[in-house]
């Protein structure tokens, strides 16, 4: 595994279109439990094995409309807590996209996700917008992250970014 946290490397977990927030964070997973516990129910209705088998450094790969639905940010938070270090998709629902980036997890729009199979080993360079499929030897390109968010993502998300900014202003 790559030791550089900014260049995640891990196994791909590939799913289809329309992964919604009710699947990523069913209500029982966040009503009365912390996300560290609730993340065990992530994607339960779609793939009961996912939460138990995903490992730190893994990459989540989805089709179109990733994260549609609610604004509940337990959806990307569960993925992060389970160890997911980057999310690739053909397209993202807008609130999920912002929520994911706000947690410091790169969300990358990637037209060629169909060329990735579950279990492939991927190395993702979010700043360059490049995905190396170490299993197939292919290199895929993604849309680069929005430039105005680079500093926030480099700081690890919105809260660390604001903490730093507030300290500088103080």
């Amino acid at each position: 595994m790559s030791t550089d946290r900014n260049i995640p490397e891990g196994r791909a977990w590939v799913y289809g279109d329309n992964i919604d927030t009710d699947q990523l964070a069913p209500i029982k997973s966040y009503k009365n439990m912390e996300a560290e516990e609730g993340c065990k129910f992530c994607l339960e209705a779609l793939d009961a094995d996912f939460a138990g088998a995903v490992e730190d450094g893994d990459i989540f790969v989805a089709g179109a409309n990733m994260g549609i639905g609610s604004s509940r940010e337990q959806a990307p938070l569960h993925l992060k807590l389970l160890g997911i270090r980057a999310v690739l998709a053909k397209s993202f629902a807008r609130i999920f996209y912002r929520n994911t980036l706000n947690f410091g997890v790169p969300a990358l729009i990637c037209a060629d996700v169909d060329r990735i199979n579950s279990g492939d080993r991927l190395r993702v360079d979010p700043l360059k917008g490049r995905v190396e499929n170490l299993t197939t030897g292919e290199t895929l390109s993604c849309d680069p992250l929005p430039e105005h968010l680079m500093a926030m993502i480099a700081d690890g998300g919105l809260m660390p970014h604001l903490t730093k900014k507030l300290k500088q202003e103080a």
Partner: peptide, 8 residues
């Protein structure tokens, strides 16, 4: 917006 964004 999500909760972190709201905190911002």
């Amino acid at each position: 917006i999500g909760a972190t964004e709201l905190a911002g």
